[in-house]
Amino acid sequence: MTLEKVAEMISEISDMEASEITTETALSDLGIDSLDIAELVLNLENEFGVKLEMDGSLKTVGDIVAKLDALKA
């Protein structure tokens, strides 16, 4: 569930299709810059109603999904 939504939101700001994005996908492979990541984080926060800290621990899409699930729980 969370992965699908995150993948969809990432696909909006990158060249990747939502279907190509997995938990293994590294943020550094998305071809997006730090400003895009800030935009993504803001969109995710609004969508999921949580606060995400971009502290370097989020390296893959799976990390974001796990963080969101933990914050929602």
Binding site: L35, L42, N43
Partner: peptide, 9 residues
């Protein structure tokens, strides 16, 4: 800040 998203955050 260098974008609207960063300003809002």
């Amino acid at each position: 800040v260098a974008s609207v998203a960063m300003a809002k955050m």
